[in-house]
Nucleic acid binder design. Sequence first.
RNA 1: GCCGGGAUGGUGGAAUAGGUAGACACGCAAGACUUAAAAUCUUGUGGGAGCAAUCCCGUGCGGGUUCGAUUCCCGCUCCUGGUACCA
Length: 942
Amino acid sequence: MNFLFLQAFSLKIINNSIMAEYNFREIEKKWQAYWEKNQTYLAEPNPDKPKFYSLDMFPYPSGAGLHVGHPLGYIASDIIARFKRLKGFNVLHPMGYDSFGLPAEQYAIQTGQHPAITTEQNITRYTEQLKNIGFAFDWSKEVRTSDPAYYKWTQWIFMQLFNSYYDQEADKALSIDSLISRFEKEGNKNVKAICDDETPIFSHLDWKAFSEKEKQEMLLKYRLTFLAETTVNWCAALGTVLSNDEVKDGFSERGGHPVERKKMMQWSMRITAYADRLLQGLEKVDWSEPIKEMQRNWIGKSIGAEVTFEVKDSSETIKVFTTRVDTIFGVTYLALAPESDLSAALITEDQRASAEAYIEVAKNRSERERMSDVKTISGAFTGSYAINPFNGEEIQIWVADYVLAGYGTGAVMAVPAHDERDYNFAKHFGLEIRQVIEGSMENGSFPGKGGLIINSGFISNLYMKDAMIKAIEFLEEKGIGKGKIQYRMRDAIFTRQRYWGEPLPVYFKEGLPYLIEEKDLPLVLPEVDKYLPTEDGAPPLGRAKNWTYKTSEGEFPLEMSTMPGWAGSSWYFFRYMDPKNDTEFVDKAKADYWGAVDLYIGGSEHATGHLLYSRFWTKFLFDLGVVSIDEPFQKMINQGMIQGRSNFVYRIKGENKFVSLGLKDNYDTSAMHVDVNIVHNDQLNLDKFKAWRPDLADAEFILEDGKYHCGSEVEKMSKSKYNVVNPDDIIERYGADTLRSYEMFLGPLEQFKPWNTNGIDGVFKFLRKLWNLYHTPTGEFQVSDEAPSKAELKALHKAIKKMEEDMENHSFNTSVSSFMICVNELTALKSNKRGILEPLAVLVSPYAPHIAEELWSLLGYSTSITEATFPEFKEEYLVESNFEYPVMINGKMRAKLNLPLSLSVPEIEKEAMADETVQKWLEGKAPKKVIIVPGKIVNLVI
RNA sequence: GCCGGGAUGGUGGAAUAGGUAGACACGCAAGACUUAAAAUCUUGUGGGAGCAAUCCCGUGCGGGUUCGAUUCCCGCUCCUGGUACCA
């Protein structure tokens, strides 16, 4: 009875204290509703204000829902968006969904449920989760790439690409119609345009004589999107194309079916036409140097020469690309890619058996495998010989899998003396190694970029650059080659043999592609009975009824492939500006107002994919004149991935007994993943553990100091490892403001880091302390109108200064620290002055918007804190008259001296020499050297 | 393989025009309050030696430059992102 009474009594106290304390649940719900009702974050063009476009990489809405890793970047961009708004900017901060993709399709294959339905469900869940975090998103701008109203314009952009070619004289994309009129007038002889390598020269008369089919075939060689044969990983058993990731040692990862490299007609995007502009554009944008470097390397511009080798006793010729034509007298063999048609053609009868067997094995190895495996050297002699045009020598032609078909011409001239891979190959097969650059061959091959050319006929005794110029002159004179710029980057394959993607607005007439009419957009994804390829290997759209296009000439089959995931994500940042426009992909005036994205935050894993494609499409849209910017993302930050942190319990083998981490070595145990959500600070909650799974209900424990300590490990966040942390759970326990601040407090945004909640209590305590500054110990709101003291102003302005610097450098973690310091100092000062607490609320509002809104309204404001102005930093409050000089002796700190900052160097030296500790170290001698940096340090060398 | 990134106390991290290594926070320990626990508050906390003053060691490893290096240079090790059909 006594006990019951006590419990009732303490409950009452708790209730009272809840009334008084920081009630984040109520506050957050209240302000989220307020923002939604008042459309606080609605952004429309306003010529009176400077604009700021803060963008996140939109998520793919997966079935697993949002985990704590997703919001990391969103929180950072939200903080910047809110900060910029306080600084007077008109801020566009939208969110949407990249909702086409493979996981939804895979799920549809397994369950038969339409991907649109699961995608819709996932989006609903994502939106709910995002709203709980209190982002300043303008939800009226939401886009979804799988929405026909959206992909209508993805298809429209595809059509513009089909109707364009890249003119090298204008250095931009031009309409294909203007190319046709040039062909009609003068043929293609003087047309300088990016086109297929094998494009023949024709006159205007030839053009007129071409059939409709021939004309279309010719134009396809120029269009910016075109059909071409490309090599893919084909899995016949699954009836589908696989990515390199899905292929392991020649077999599909899923099912273990054999995979072959197969040539297939696919749509491609002529991104290589933009290679140089993509390279130059990097100079204009404010991105981190490593990301730029990755793009530069991806584009991989190399300057060199193309050389044609004749084949002995054959009409075939072999074109090679080399960056080192100066070493051409050192060529001792040619090497061809296994999948090259030439390889097969050049095999002689006596080499047939061995060479063909080699090709069969080699060409089915994935490119990734072939590139990473440098230890196994393999190849086969074709039996044929090529003739070096520089010296007439006969050299062997080999097939080697270190040569990739996709780069250059798929053939290399091998110079073993000056290239490592060629050297290893020649050594292995006993081929000649001929040195043509002065230097020592002691350590094998050497590139010899600075050395003198030797043993090289007419280019001997020259240095690299001059030798190259002379060699290229020779090639061009003889018509057997030319100087050439080669890019490592390949044209981007644009079709996928999948269901859940945008249909291509293309139909086929006599085997040639034609665009459907613009008025028929969007070409809506048809219904199918199954999301699998057809029995005869056609893509899933082959299952659709009436997948045809009707014109006045009849009914024609539509393209059955769909677009890749990157299609919709390559232009979504424009659509946010004007998401409901159904006459244009974006209104030009709106696009001009918002311009480029001012800050783009997303993972560095997109460095070469999405970011390159988006830049490509933006440049193309710029060429069309429909937008005025040619670089979409002015500034970018790449946030690091949040990794999972798994917890383990240790079960004694054969028993239902678990041993705490420190004692596990005394028993024969096996580690078992345990749900991280029932572990706090690496301590297992025993009751929750027993309730976790039925088989654990009667589990027993061997504890340390009455506690069960869990082991931990950093792994990828995944369901099967029970280390997925859902932001909803964190919000339920601590609130969104704590989640937001904690994610930032965790470490530098760019850094990869494992998620753990071990420090979250500290951030929660900080918010409660902040709240308490505005309240009496009994929980009544109370601020004083007294003028703030010097110490209070100093505490505040230190934080203002730090916040401003941190926003500039994107050091979000240190801002939280500086807020903590500020609140700790103000708490110690028992400060409750309005002159401090008002600016403080504004200061923290980008990080913790809900509590800031609540405090702001308690302070008497009837408008949102987002309407406030960021407090102005005043240096005068931080000015110090003294500095505590560290005195270092031989590089080690030995003493401290508090001296006025006004002292000159000799005066500081005098003070330092007079110091007792310094005297002790000097032992009466004079220092050898004295270094004094005013305001920083005193260093004596003895 | 190639192209990027990273490594600092028991833990997350702070500090780079080269100038006091370990801010802030977690954890831990001791104390206060409490019948008790939780919560809260106070103090301490890189490692080692010492009663202490103090000294030695210390930013992944091995070298170098410098009065002074977490920071710059050279050579490694390990972890990690991308590598073209995951998004």
